[in-house]
Amino acid sequence: MIKKPKQLLVPNSEALVNEALKDLGQRIEQPMRRAFLQRALSLGGLSLLSGCAVVDEESVESALLKVSRFNDKAQAWLFDPNRLAPTYPESMITRPFPFNAYYGEDEIREVDEASYRLEVTGLVADKQAWTLAELRTMPQETQVTRHICVEGWSAIGKWGGVRFASFLRRIGADTTAKYVGFKCADDYYTSIDMPTALHPQTLLTLTYDDQPLPPRYGFPMKLRMPTKLGYKNPKHIQAIFVTNTYPGGYWEDQGYNWFGGS
């Protein structure tokens, strides 16, 4: 797991420096991660094809990426918008529900509720930002579903919030667009396909186990999709945008499969 380096900052200049670091950081870190990925894949490629004297490692890598794109299409084709993920009795909830992120528990971001606004941009009619109180006035529902991690483990949890399809319709989103993207307060970002965004079990969650979502599970809000792997479920969401331009994602840009469905 790649952990984000800790940034030590003077408190009053924090916002300004943070902004600059964020821009810079993405430019610096991405090529480093890519180099890491290349090295990692090449080693694997070499050990497999060690019989051959000359192996074009980049072509092996690009072939694997092509298959991953093909797997995106295969999964979109397999995805049934009406098929529901299994739900479980509350007695089966995993306690404690595991914490998981690209950083450790000591780096969990604290988001201030009073100043929090959810930004909505892209192909939507109403771009007004949302407060948490406003989101809480929308009809809420809960689900007890299985979270499946790309690492293989799974855990059952209970999430509550607004059905994402209702939210998208409320803001007048173009539901014929290809992607919905997410930017998060912990610098995580990801994106999903529109059919999954409109799935009845896709929830913009505000609670975990009937309590306001704690920071470790993504306060103030997490998009919960029992039809997708854990890394597709963004926490600490700050901005939602609807687009036809492929937005990628934090792990997806490093080689995880983009569709990431289950």
Binding site: L48, L64, V67, S68, Q254, G255, Y256
Partner: peptide
């Protein structure tokens, strides 16, 4: 003994 270098690489090999 493993292939792929890291989880993401291994999954790419596996799912190909």
């Amino acid at each position: 003994l493993t292939l792929g270098g890291w989880l993401g690489g291994a999954i790419q090999w596996h799912f190909a």
